[in-house]
Design a protein around this nucleic acid. Structure first.
Lengths: 222, 222
DNA sequence: CGGCGATTTGAATTACATCAATCTAGGTGG
DNA sequence: CCACCTAGATTGATGTAATTCAAATCGCCG
């Protein structure tokens, strides 16, 4: 989302660098700024007491994240070495009260990540492992704007991917082997792959309308 | 979140009523307003092509939802007959550019739902079925401010609960029976239950000794 | 070149889903 | 008011996808 970035640049900001694996902020930390990825990859995650980890989002160049107000509701870590732009929260807020477009962009960004997480959750609870992996790779390829046949780079570890998809690394490994054997996928080293099939599949869309019986009633108040 | 509601009341608003099971808005609809629940229960969900449904949130009186900007990223439906207050989006936006507290509240609300979904996702991908159910019931009881021993009402159907927890209705049914047999839970009719053990524990996590099945005292975290 | 974490492979296990058959509640009409 | 009627809920039997445990292998970085 380059637009939001350029608009946000009117707020106080500076660059920040994090090395692979390092914490950008932790859940519960006080929020003092929001970020944009300039280079590299960032993961948003929730860690449970018993060591399990759920990655809720991967962020790439152009993505804005960290739009909390007081306390962070998830952690952010650097998947690779990353370059970030860090915007002062007070400055952004102040800007938003003067510019409707800034306000809109911030709200839009917040809603976008929510919608993406909602769909992510839907996918990993209802899709079998193979389709989850395909869905992930497909989306990654689509996001990078890769042409079919072109190799896509996976900046994150297998463990990251499995923690994103709700699978064990073992299962993920088996699935990827299977996908290669079936010709859906061909690996280029360990960190790149080529999707045989077209990016973004167009499944048959059903109509899950339930019961359109009566209409809601509304009345003006106050 | 009653505070946000009272502040939002400065924006143009109406009351709206929906009957059990009816659509409040659908994914992809144009956003024209945001809502607060006054009475009843609302579910936010995403439906997949093959008829599967993932409920991403249940909303109760006081909760504000629908903070999208252009297109809705999920659907909202009435779990029970509901009374809502509907705030005009343009009016809220206009208000936010004049009042920092409104802006803060809207952003805070958006971040809260995000954080909750992130944790919800974490729970349903890492917790076994029994603990998922316990987690849900416990949170529901906590939210309703029910004292231990007091019965809690489940406003939603079993199917709703199973679609929220990523289980089949059959599994949910078996789990709930098991919980009753084990004395963790006692049902009062089909729509109410009493939690034997303490509702809600936000206490600091002790040590890595976690085997919830061995002892009567469960560790349930939010 | 050696060491060690990350990944892959293999075998056994299991938790949950699926399929199919009741059962129950609560809404409807007689 | 009560007896149906039906969708939702429960129960049972069986299947299986994914996990778990364990071991071998890869590949990166010193």
């Amino acid at each position: 989302m380059p637009e939001i970035a350029s608009i946000l640049d009117a707020a106080k900001h500076w660059t920040a660098h994090y090395r692979r694996g390092h914490l950008i902020y932790g859940e519960g930390d006080l929020t003092t700024g929001i970020y944009r990825v300039d280079k590299g990859c960032v993961r948003l995650q929730v860690d449970s007491a018993d060591g399990d980890r759920q990655i809720v989002a991967f962020l790439f160049p152009g993505d804005v994240f960290g739009m909390s107000v007081d306390l962070r509701t998830s952690s952010a870590e650097a998947v690779s070495d990353v370059d970030l732009t860090r915007y002062s929260l007070p400055s952004v807020l102040e800007l938003a009260t003067r510019s409707t477009s800034v306000l809109l962009q911030v709200m839009r960004a917040a809603d976008t990540v929510y919608g993406e997480l909602a769909h992510h959750t839907e996918q990993i609870t209802h899709l079998p492992a193979t389709e989850r992996v395909l869905w992930f790779l497909d989306r990654l390829a689509g996001r990078e704007g890769v042409q079919p046949g072109e190799p896509v780079r996976l900046p994150m570890s297998r463990r990251d991917v499995s923690d994103y998809l709700g699978l064990t690394p073992e299962t993920l490994s088996r699935i990827m082997r299977q996908l290669q054997d079936d010709g859906h996928l061909s690996a280029v080293g360990r960190k790149s792959f080529t999707l045989r099939r077209p990016t973004f599949r167009v499944g048959p869309v059903d109509d899950p309308q339930l019961d359109p019986l009566s209409l809601p009633s509304e009345q003006l108040c106050a």
